[in-house]
């Protein structure tokens, strides 16, 4: 179904966003895997996460040729944009990445997720806005279903952020570009 690569800075919620996709896929009975880059990762350093949602059993958990790429910073855009498969989709946080893809064999979307988050009093939730946007544009999941799924994916310690997460998701669902 989909090989998804999420990439950006540590601290942007890349791993969390990837996990929400996997959780939703699992609830639909798909085969799923989630593999983070790990090691000397830190807030501000680079960070990426391979996510696979498939009907077939999953072979390699490492996504080297994504169907869908989420680029949350310029180094990630530079590193992975060329790796997106023909006919694939590229989602860019245009608040943080000023470059545009020159490829005509992929669909590229630019969403100022970080600015939208800040403007709406949702600092740090650009990742969830982006999730809403990709769910809508890719049709990976039904919007209502994904909202419910996100609810159950929020850890107990962050339960008070449920409303904010929903708001962020709605912004993503509703964004047009």
């Amino acid at each position: 179904m989909s090989n998804i690569l999420l990439a950006g800075f540590g601290g942007q919620g890349i791993l969390f966003a990837g996990k929400q996709i996997v959780l939703a896929g699992m609830k639909l009975g798909k085969n799923v895997s989630w593999l983070p880059s790990y090691g000397p990762e830190m807030r501000g350093g680079t960070c990426n996460c391979s996510v696979i949602v498939e009907d077939e059993p999953i072979g390699s958990p490492l996504v080297t040729k994504p169907d869908i790429l989420l680029a949350f910073n310029t180094p990630s855009f530079d590193k992975f944009e060329s790796k997106v498969v023909k006919g694939g989709m590229l989602f860019v946080d245009s608040s943080l990445v000023s470059k545009k893809s020159e490829r005509d064999d992929i669909k590229a979307y630019y969403i100022p997720a970080t600015e939208l988050a800040d403007e709406n009093g949702l600092p740090g939730m650009a990742n969830v806005i982006m999730l809403g946007f990709i769910v809508k544009k890719t049709g990976l999941f039904d919007e209502e279903f994904f909202k419910e799924s996100l609810n159950s994916g929020i850890p107990a310690s962050k339960a008070h952020l449920a409303a904010a997460n929903h708001k962020a998701l709605e912004i993503g669902f509703g964004y047009e570009c």
Binding site: V22, M26, V32, S33, W34, L35, P36, Y38, I58, P61
Partner: peptide
């Protein structure tokens, strides 16, 4: 190995 240790699956 490190990948199996770090990855999530059902």
């Amino acid at each position: 190995d490190g990948a199996l240790g770090q990855m999530m699956e059902p």
